[in-house]
Design a protein around this nucleic acid. Structure first.
Length: 205
DNA sequence: GTATGGATTGTC
DNA sequence: ACAATCCATACT
């Protein structure tokens, strides 16, 4: 499949978040391709978005990559135990990003399964298959994405995103998850997911 | 140097 | 409903 061009990422994060649904996230690790279809994403609109790490132009070592060119990975550690992966969007010095929140596993299934459960894929229960990558922390474990991927160029050959299939789907929008601190931004409908996809993290919200 | 809390998850 | 777990950030 064809990699998404830099221009895909050089738009506002709301547009990119919606357009990322159905695309394939690929991580090449240990000589194998791990692939998941993006089924859920959240837009973080940067300087004026109280939910964003870059709110009010907060520029620190952690958020630095968000101020650079679009199409790079912003990975951060959350709660001391999980990583979350974002795609940097918009132009330089406009620190927007899209959080990848859930994947439908596509290939490298055994590798993903071993990373999450130390078991082969065909030994998993149904619930474990659903839970392989249906959350921002889980998908990073399954895909082997960690802080060493901070700043990775998504137009490169290690961590990238490709075009999806021709399937049609409807997009649902809702409030973003776990940003209760964000005052009025709590209610912005900037979470997007594929309707009726079983790998979405919290379909009901 | 010190304190605070989090774009989560798994278990109780 | 809550603990796990620890770094980034803000403040002194």
């Amino acid at each position: 499949m064809k990699k998404l061009p830099r221009s895909f990422y050089e738009q506002d994060s709301i547009t990119v978040a919606q357009n990322l649904l159905g695309k394939y996230l690929v991580h090449v690790i240990d000589g194998e391709e791990l692939v998941g279809k993006i089924v859920e994403a959240e837009a973080y609109m940067g300087i004026e978005d109280k939910a964003a790490h870059s709110y009010n132009n907060r520029r620190t070592p952690r958020t630095e990559v968000m101020y650079g060119p679009a199409g790079h990975a912003y990975v951060f550690l959350i709660y001391g135990m999980y990583c979350c992966m974002n795609v940097v969007t918009a132009e330089v010095n406009n620190p927007q990003a899209v959080l990848i929140r859930a994947l439908e596993p596509v290939s490298g299934l055994n590798r993903m399964s071993l990373r999450r459960y130390s078991k082969k894929y065909d030994e998993l229960k149904k619930s474990q298959i659903i839970n392989l990558a249906n959350g921002p922390g889980k998908l990073c474990v399954a895909m082997g994405i960690d802080m060493s991927n901070y700043g990775d160029d998504l137009c490169g050959d290690r961590l990238f995103i490709t075009e999806g299939s021709n399937e049609k789907f409807d997009i649902v929008s809702s409030r973003r998850i776990n940003i209760d601190y964000a005052e009025e931004a709590v209610y912005y409908p900037w979470r997007f997911y594929i309707e009726n996809n079983p790998y979405v993290s919290k379909p009901h919200v």
